[in-house]
Amino acid sequence: MTALPGRTEKSLGLVIDLDTCVGCQACAVSCKEWNSASGSHAPLADLDAYGAAPAGTFLNRVHSFEVTPPEGPAVVVHFPRSCLHCADAPCVTVCPTGASYKRAEDGIVLVDEAACIGCGLCAWACPYGARELDGAERVMKKCTLCVDRIYNDALPEADRVPACVKACPTGARHFGDLADPGSAVSRLVAARGGFDLMPEQGTRPVNKYLPPRPRGPSGQAPLEPLAAAAPGGFLGWLDRALDRL
């Protein structure tokens, strides 16, 4: 049923640090790879793969934005975008088939591909462009929060994290339970002022973004030259300094 669970036991999700993300696309590609290879879902297809207009399904896309402040130089912010596993997920409630659902136990929003009719409505309802209809399978695809990794006892325990989190070389992606205020991710969000994307959409995303830290000079005062103070100039200073060694 596409009714949303009122509350979920956990709210598993990602925290993405925009201060640290270098835009390397590792998360986007590892996501594509795992979600094609795991076999839990249909592979993510690539159409015209070697042709003039390639177009494929990715569940995670990394943008680059340029931000020009009123004063000071422009900055560049790399910005990964994937499903935010919203608490009030409009993609779920619009689904006519029940294929889209939010798990009561951990809040993960999933698509049952066997039930999906590929109407595309959920993708329309998602403000974040997090859903893509697969060009070959003709069903809706979205981030699964790697539900087939995080509970997968065939993987070593350390690897039971989303593929993108494992791959991210800078550690800009964090995975955990955002319903638990004591979890590492919740504490990170609190400490760094994590925020929601498009709060006006009323989706109440689980995933949070950490803002880039302020950029710019440290404000260190310039060094005092010693020539003026030091008798004998530089050599004099040098001699005395060597004596002190």
Partner: peptide, 27 residues
């Protein structure tokens, strides 16, 4: 959309991908 507006004027520098996608085509 990015939550970065408080820092200044925000403008996409380069697209996340040069290839096509369902979202681009549909939305």
């Amino acid at each position: 959309a990015t939550g970065l507006g408080a820092l200044g004027r925000v403008r996409p520098l380069s697209p996340a991908h040069t290839g096509g996608s369902y979202v681009l085509k549909e939305m």
